[in-house]
Design a protein around this nucleic acid. Structure first.
Lengths: 132, 132
DNA sequence: TGTATTTTTCGATATTTTCCGATATAAAAT
DNA sequence: ATTTTATATCGGAAAATATCGAAAAATACA
């Protein structure tokens, strides 16, 4: 019968997490590559990967592969559920999210290969910038 | 700086929980007494009380005292944030939530004192109906 | 093929959360 | 005042989740 409730709870859990919410909100304006996300948020790349896995499981984002890169983005407009639409509206006003988006713009100005290369190493030098 | 993000995450966590989400959705159509909620959902009264505490902390519900009873309800319309509004819309379609609401109607047909008295004892006899 | 590069999965530990009986508090009724 | 009744809080064991380095897997290109 009904574990629709459980499904909804799982989707809520997916965003009840500082990094995952940041990532989701970061993607709302448009797709980004995985390593661009890691560089923008200054978190270990593996953490971004796990966050993306959850967001994908919850049906909030989709991915597109291009060469050796993976680009992720929020699901298309018409697939936004009421709750997700509201959440993105609300998150889009948070100062931290706006900061993140500004930083993403700077990162996007760089060449993708250079950003990805940087991410490999930088993680080990940014030990506490991790938490939200 | 900004831990608006953390605040939003806390609010999401508050509803990322089967019982708390059920309680919130149950209250959407209108206020109920605490023991009516416990009886409707067939969970220990202490669990309902803790669920309500979290929902209050998150700013989703308000309480009203009348005599020895406490009635709880969702915050007024105009205070609904986009995310909460969307969530209630979405939850309001779930079969389990509709079931719960139907059961609440039956419970409301009984006298409040009798329901409250029942709740005191019934909890210990419903060991596994608790989850979701 | 082999090698370099990007992303995902795994493992181990630390932290947080859940759950509910027992008990405390508060407010009415006697 | 004492008792009853409704709700809140506490305790603490069990379960779930977070974290991130290390290793694996996947992909392009030489």
């Amino acid at each position: 019968m009904t574990d629709d409730l459980r499904v909804l709870v799982e989707r809520l859990k997916a965003v009840s997490h500082p990094l995952r919410l940041r990532v989701l909100a970061l993607l709302a304006p448009g797709e980004l590559g995985v390593c661009q996300v890691a560089e923008t948020l200054q978190v270990p790349q593996s953490s971004v990967s796990e966050a993306l896995k959850e967001l994908r499981r919850a049906g909030f984002i989709v991915e597109r592969k291009e060469g050796r890169w993976v680009f992720v983005s929020v699901v298309p407009q018409q697939e936004l559920t009421p709750f997700l639409r509201g959440l993105l509206t609300e998150a889009g006003n948070l100062p931290k999210v706006l900061e993140d988006r500004a930083r993403a713009k700077e990162v996007q100005a760089l060449s993708l290969p250079s950003v990805c290369a940087k991410v490999q190493t930088v993680a080990s030098m940014a030990p506490e910038a991790v938490r939200a």
